[in-house]
């Protein structure tokens, strides 16, 4: 199990290897579909972005409301593939760390290789689990997007898995799985 403190330092990010289990600690930004669309529009217009990509990662997530006494509600990852059209542009502009669930496009893998960016898989559907790894949450931009607003989180022992590392290498599935052993449950 590796640990990554955020904001990350370059060497720590580069030391992650595809297939590693990773725990995240520190500041993590949150944005999903509409935030990506707006970041891409801001870049196209040459506008200032709401936060600097340097040392920071984006977690693809939109939380449920916080029950009383909780910092945040369920807070698991959303499907990364929907961010694929925007990610290469953000990577080109300095983004080096993405956290979400599911596979990425060939273009995102290639951008990771070229710019030494990392894609971490967070455990899909585990909203209650991630809720308890979040120490604070505040809206940084686009509050009108409601559950899709751009957030800044402080996370602690946030479990993830390195799917694509900074050399663009994709994790390899385990070999020799005896599929025929499981015809039924």
């Amino acid at each position: 199990m590796k640990e990554l403190r955020l904001p990350y330092d370059e060497d720590a990010l580069l030391s992650l290897e595809a297939g590693d289990e990773v725990l995240l600690y520190g500041k993590l930004y949150v944005g999903r579909d509409q935030v990506h669309k707006r970041l891409a529009e801001a870049i196209a217009k040459g506008e200032k972005l709401p936060f600097s990509f340097t040392g920071q990662g984006i977690y693809y997530m939109g939380p449920s409301p916080a029950p009383e006494g909780c910092v945040i509600g369920a807070a698991g990852p959303t499907t990364s593939a929907r961010m694929d059209p925007y990610s290469p542009l953000l990577i080109e502009r300095g983004l080096r760390l993405m956290v979400g669930k599911g596979p990425r496009s060939a273009e995102v893998s290639e951008a990771c290789r070229k710019w030494h960016a990392v894609y971490l898989y967070a455990y899909g559907g585990c909203g209650a689990l991630y809720s308890q790894c979040i120490l604070s949450s505040r809206v940084v931009a686009f509050p009108e997007l409601g559950p899709e607003a751009l957030l800044e989180l402080t996370v602690d022992s946030f479990p993830a898995f390195c799917m694509i590392d900074a050399s663009g290498r994709h994790f390899e599935k385990a070999r020799d799985i005896p599929f025929d052993a499981c015809f039924s449950l």
């Binding site: 939109g62 449920s64 509600g73 369920a74 807070a75 909203g127 209650a128 689990l129 809720s131």
Partner: peptide, 21 residues
């Protein structure tokens, strides 16, 4: 393992299993 942990945590709290309700 994480899914089962999540199932147990949601049952014991007032937080939904998944943010996509």
């Amino acid at each position: 393992k994480n899914i089962i942990l999540n199932i147990d945590k949601a049952r014991a709290s007032s937080v939904p299993l998944c943010q996509d309700c």
